[in-house]
Design a protein around this nucleic acid. Sequence first.
DNA 1: CTGGATCCCGAGCGATACTG
DNA 2: CAGTATCGCTCGGGATCCAG
Lengths: 119, 119
Amino acid sequence: MCDAENSEARIVRDLLSRVGDKWSLLVIRMLHEHSMRFTELQRSIDGISHRMLTQTLRNLERDGLVSRTSYPEIPPRVEYAATDLGRSLALPVLGLVEWAAANHASITDAREAFDAARD
Amino acid sequence: MCDAENSEARIVRDLLSRVGDKWSLLVIRMLHEHSMRFTELQRSIDGISHRMLTQTLRNLERDGLVSRTSYPEIPPRVEYAATDLGRSLALPVLGLVEWAAANHASITDAREAFDAARD
DNA sequence: CTGGATCCCGAGCGATACTG
DNA sequence: CAGTATCGCTCGGGATCCAG
């Protein structure tokens, strides 16, 4: 208990290193709705490259947040879905998204005011 | 409204680019408790460098999440505190921290299982 | 004590080309 | 369609030195 602050800090750091990258939360967010195929995801997430989608999905799968189901057909078909763990993560994430939506303007204003004050 | 998904994606991206860096959430987390001085913060946040603390505080101040009060003394004394906006951000952040604390083990286990399966 | 400037390395990520 | 491999660039961020 002497280092409760410290362990919380580690938890935040760990969390960020897992899902704090550029795309993970967006994928979680998309798969929270319903399962999707690879190309479907790529079209849904604006700006993500082929390479990064693959990599992001691998990491999420590795962490048990996303499940991968491939069907041995020609052409190949692979479905990605959020696991229970992934869906449970989506809840607090949505909290952050709501905060961002609500306070987005405040931040922009503050930033402009701050920059304007730099004369 | 035709691109509601898209705008949400932008919001997530914006949020991440603001507070998704290595240290911002930790500083928010510390200042949520009570205001602190520069050196005090540096000691409290394990591993943060002088340079990054300065930079992180500047960005948070710029976005209106943290307030800076300097006292013209010798030696200089500067107090940093979370603004109302900063404190309101801390709430959903704490939700994420709780999730991380609760599911940290699940992720670690999933990761080990995944790696073990790669034979 | 607080804060800025400079140098530099490595991670992250995009582009591209190639496989089954 | 889904996934892998290589290259190269940008930039986050640590170390260090200087200043008020």
